[in-house]
Nucleic acid binder design. Sequence first.
RNA 1: GGGUUGGUAGCUCAAUGGUAGAGCAGCGCCCUUUUAAGGCGUUGGUUGUGGGUUCGAGUCCCACCCGACCCA
Length: 489
Amino acid sequence: MLCRPMSEVNNLTAVRLEKRTALLGRGVPAYGAAFPVTGDVGEVRAGFVEGGKVTMAGRVTARRDMGKSHFLDLSDHSGRMQVYLQDKALGEEVVAVYGLLDIGDFVGVEGECFTTKTGEPSIKAEKFVFLGKSLHPLPEKWHGLQDVEARHRQRYLDLIANEHARNIFRQRFAIIREIRAFFEERGFLEVETPMMQAVAGGAAATPFETHHNALGMDLFLRIAPELYLKRLLVGGFTKVFELNRNFRNEGVSRRHNPEFTMLEAYWAYADFDMMATLVEELVCRVAQKVCGGLKIEHNDQEGMVRRTIDLSRPWRRAKYRDLVEEAEPGWFARDVSGRRNRALELGLDISHCVEDYEVTQHVFEKLVEEKTIDPCFVIHCPKELVPLAKTNPEDPSSLDVFELIINGQEIAPGYSELNDPVVQRERLVEQSGGEQHKIDEEFLHALEYGMPPAGGMGMGIDRLVMLLTGAESIREVILFPHLKPRAEA
RNA sequence: GGGUUGGUAGCUCAAUGGUAGAGCAGCGCCCUUUUAAGGCGUUGGUUGUGGGUUCGAGUCCCACCCGACCCA
């Protein structure tokens, strides 16, 4: 029932169209022009002074008519304010216009602040104008908009009807603002690098493809900004970050949207350990500012606390091997087939695991990652898992990297970035599986000029927002998540 | 891709295989301090789409569309 053509309007819309026509027939603009206001609805409420004059506009979200006096609720993102209208005060002509009002219309009022006998701060309207007629009824006033599909397809209705949704997005954009402030304070430069790339590098994922007509070349939407940010280290920048969209042409799920927001930061002369501290400080600052503390509570639908995540520092740092050994003692003492058998005994599905390290990784995911709720930096992961990091000088089978786990999920990886162009080329060739066109030669060429040692980190912002708001699905934290179009829409 | 599950009025939800209903919204009337205002009356449906079974299908079966959850 979405986006129906005007020819298929139902009765409710037809009635509203008639009211629109009636307004215009009376010479009353149904879609008014500029209407300078004292402030947003919430600001007017906050600045309420008995007897004070205010001008306010908003959407009518409730009306209570009582013969010759009327109460309206005007709302916007910031809140709700009651307006009181008296027929006697408005005059015959405005009363007739008021009769053409529907819930959902935008109106403007001017009047005096007063408190009703029930104690409700209100505006006694002296002036009443239409600013925007609504042709469709709003979702039900008490239950709001419940239908998940409609909430995502028509997010504007979700935002009108559901305060919870408004709060999540307010928090999302506060989080992003705080991230920028954090890096700014530490002297990092926010940069922009190409979203359209000739080679989609920096991660292992299927890219979206497009074509540049004038240049006659195929391009890919980036799957990561990493290889360009490193070019900036070559160019002499020492602290850079980018906070913007990545695109991956893969499945859509509770945790995946085809376009998602990624933070990447690179810090010359630092390493993975310094980056871990940076991430720790970043997340704590954001949580402190946006959530008001370091204990993050996730609630169930009844509002009961389902889980508490404690972000208090210092966060645990533990080696990958030690965590696996802790969860499954004796794991590394077994031989390859011993590990396979033990994984099967543990009830793990390892049928698709070819390599030994994959079996271990499966044990890690099920027995460590999924059970780690409070923050933990998993350090020195096996080198098969990460192609762009430096090997640990003390243990060549592992890397100088961390993977931050919070709430059973990977939140942020960080590396001591590989800056040896010869080793980097070997790794990329290995990763490309022999497909030359998947290797970013220009990046390797840049690296050959010399890149300083550096620490790097990445963080999926959508997942961070989920973590901090308790949202169960990525669609709850993305304003307009991708959904299949409806057949008739 | 596989499994489970859902789609009924504008919205929120009902309805043993047997006349598709309620609340809100809407429409009409009453009401000058209400706030899920109230009172009386009333309109509104190709039950996601297309087939099938049946005397009879919102309900059972098949296919498809669009979601949700779990798994890969």
